Simulated assay, not measured.
Amino acid sequence: MWEERIRIEPPYDFDRVLDRLSMDPLHHVRLEEREVSIPLRNQNNDPFVVTVKGMGTKTAPEFLLSGKSDKDFAIKETMRIFQWDFSLVDVQTHFRSTNIAEIFEAHDGTPIVLEFSLYGCLMKCIIHQQLNLKFAHTLTERFVHTFGEKIDGVWFYPAPEKVAQLDYSDLRELQFSGRKAEYVIDTSKLIAEGKINLEELQNMEDAAILKELVKIRGVGPWTVQNLLLFGLGRPNLFPFADIGIQNALKKHFQLERKPTFEEMEILSKEWSPYLSYASLYLWRSIE
């Protein structure tokens, strides 16, 4: 068993991180202990668990990491997932003079936290398409509980190779629609066959990733934008079609109706190059 203490630059509100992570029933979060256990796979694709415990405060953030194996890899991945090497000072400073400054003040120190795996993120995005959040979580939970694996109390998404071998009827039995079952399995087949290399996306521009992935049946711009934001941590994304963001803008600017895309473009013009943080903080404002 290994342990490692890590201190990072403030502000960083780990309690808000845990609160948001706890919204997903698949996440192994213990709010009172200020801990989350995360499922990781090493470079040989072997699964293992790392526990992250908050030891400090928003203004003096410190964490205790612990695990049973792959220490160096685990620390590197945890740093990436929780965005510990990204300074929120610049973000807070940028938004202090914008039209959503009040939201950023209320949620000061809230980082973008990535999904624990790119494949899991893509599957989650596909499953969540056009569903209310509660049923989307239920469907994703059924998918992982049925075909994934549980290690040390932590659930891992199934490997794409396993999902690629399923029949559409296997997912239909979990209340997947016929089309969504096809999207999940067919996309997994493309990944398992090497026709889509998720790791290569790390080195591609946002526009190139969008152009490539929307070729996949069942993967549209909303899905790709969420993958870019929560899978790859790209900082300057604003999903105009997201209903939650539209509702947050309607509430914040006291509009009589949800804004049009043109109105959203005008409102968001001054938020670049941190549009992703504007997206997150707008979601947080209504969650």
Rank of each mutant, 00 (worst) to 15 (best):
I216C: 12
Y168T: 04
G244A: 00
M123K: 03
E263T: 08
E62F: 02
K76R: 13
A106C: 07
I81L: 03
Q129E: 02
E262Q: 15
I81A: 02
K68Y: 05
P11C: 13
Y168F: 12
I127Q: 03
H128A: 10
T78C: 11
R5W: 11
P239E: 03
T223I: 03
P259D: 05
F73E: 11
K58M: 12
I209Q: 06
V144G: 11
R41Y: 01
I127P: 02
L228G: 12
L26D: 04
I103M: 03
F104H: 04
L171T: 05
A136E: 06
E3A: 14
K124V: 00
E173V: 03
K215Q: 10
L139S: 09
V36C: 09
T260I: 02
N197I: 08
F143P: 13
S22D: 14
L114Y: 05
K189I: 13
I245H: 08
R20I: 15
A164E: 06
Q202M: 03
R30Q: 12
I245M: 13
L65F: 06
E200T: 08
K251S: 14
R179C: 00
N203Q: 14
F143W: 02
M1T: 13
Y119M: 03
K189L: 10
E200S: 14
E287P: 08
K250R: 15
T93Q: 11
P221F: 05
N247M: 07
A207H: 15
P61N: 09
I191Q: 05
D186K: 15
L131N: 06
I112S: 02
D85W: 05
L237C: 04
L133N: 08
L139N: 09
F86I: 15
L198A: 10
Q165C: 12
K53V: 08
F238P: 10
E212M: 15
Q92M: 12
F261K: 15
Q175I: 01
R5G: 09
P11E: 08
L174Q: 10
T138A: 11
I196T: 09
S69R: 09
R172E: 04
L122R: 06
K58W: 00
V163F: 08
W283D: 01
L131P: 13
T260M: 02
E287V: 08
P273Y: 00
V163I: 15
P10S: 02
L31M: 11
V52L: 07
A207F: 10
E105G: 13
L139T: 07
M79C: 10
E265W: 07
C125W: 00
E77M: 13
D108P: 08
K250E: 02
S69K: 14
K189T: 07
K58T: 13
M264P: 12
Q165R: 14
L237R: 11
Y183D: 08
E182P: 11
V214R: 06
N236G: 11
N203F: 07
P239S: 11
T223H: 01
T93S: 14
V214K: 09
G220L: 00
R284M: 03
L21C: 13
V163L: 01
P259A: 00
L198H: 06
Q130S: 10
I38V: 15
S37I: 07
L267M: 14
V91L: 01
S177M: 09
E141Q: 12
Y183R: 04
H94T: 10
I127N: 00
L228D: 05
A74E: 08
